[in-house]
């Protein structure tokens, strides 16, 4: 088993772990972290694929990961800001499933 495959498998593992955590936890911070872990999983898969050729690594996945990180940072910032707002209004950083009238 090559290093690339190992990285890819770890990436898939992280992704699944993230999906599980996203579903199971109610606290918004945990949900946001779960999404970040999922993102890291995808990035690891992408980078592992960059190393799949023997001679020179493929630069395109690295470029994709950099773009992906930029997107992930801004999404996380927006999510955290929303979480703080919700916390300020309801006193709890959780989604409110009760009647939203």
């Amino acid at each position: 088993m090559s290093i690339a495959i190992l990285y890819a498998l770890v990436g898939i593992g992280l992704f699944c772990l993230g999906v599980y955590a996203l579903m199971i936890h109610a606290h918004l911070l945990r949900k946001i972290l779960a999404l970040n872990i999922m993102g890291s999983g995808v990035f690891m898969v992408l980078l592992a694929l960059a190393g799949r050729t023997e001679i020179t690594p493929d630069p395109v996945p690295a470029a994709m990961v950099i773009t992906g990180i930029v997107v992930a940072v801004s999404a996380t910032a927006l999510a955290l800001a929303l979480m703080l707002k919700i916390n300020a209004i309801t006193g709890r950083a959780e989604l409110n499933d009760a009647e939203e009238k």
Binding site: L78, I86, L95
Partner: peptide, 12 residues
């Protein structure tokens, strides 16, 4: 409250 909840759910 409703809009923020809706937005958060949408974002996730």
């Amino acid at each position: 409250k409703a809009a923020l909840n809706g937005a958060m759910r949408y974002l996730l």
